[in-house]
């Protein structure tokens, strides 16, 4: 597989380490009232879709950036790749505007 790194272009997937579902970046608030339940779902449950999957890859043998790669799990077609940090910052912005996150 080849991963289109947003900064470095096409890179062999062998340079990367895989983590899994990109929803892991939405870490629940550990201080919230339902934290135990939220963490159970966050840590253990997965959508595991047969189709488009947003997932985290770490460019370990490269520039050490975490990417969110959008990939079809039935064909392995890659639909896009973003820097995870950019995605996380955008989500932060959106969330804090909505005032949801403490």
């Amino acid at each position: 597989m080849l991963i289109p790194h947003p900064l470095l272009g096409l890179r062999d997937a062998q340079e990367f380490t895989y983590l899994g579902d990109a929803r892991l970046i939405d870490r629940p608030n550990g201080m919230a009232e339902n934290a135990a339940e939220a963490f159970h779902d966050y840590v253990y449950l997965r959508d595991n879709p047969a189709g488009v999957h947003r997932e985290l890859w770490f460019h370990e043998q490269g520039d050490r950036s975490w990417l969110i790669v959008t990939r079809d799990t039935t064909t392995h077609e890659i639909l896009g790749a973003e820097l995870a940090r950019d995605v996380a910052l955008t989500r932060r912005g959106a969330l804090s505007e909505g005032g949801a996150q403490a």
Binding site: G20, D21, D41, Y44, L45, R46, D47, N48, P49, A50, T73
Partner: peptide, 18 residues
């Protein structure tokens, strides 16, 4: 192999990745 795919039809998320 397809547990996630099938059990989704019963409204369940599983502690499984394929």
């Amino acid at each position: 192999g397809s547990s996630g795919r099938v059990m989704e039809k019963a409204g369940m998320r599983l502690p499984i990745e394929s």
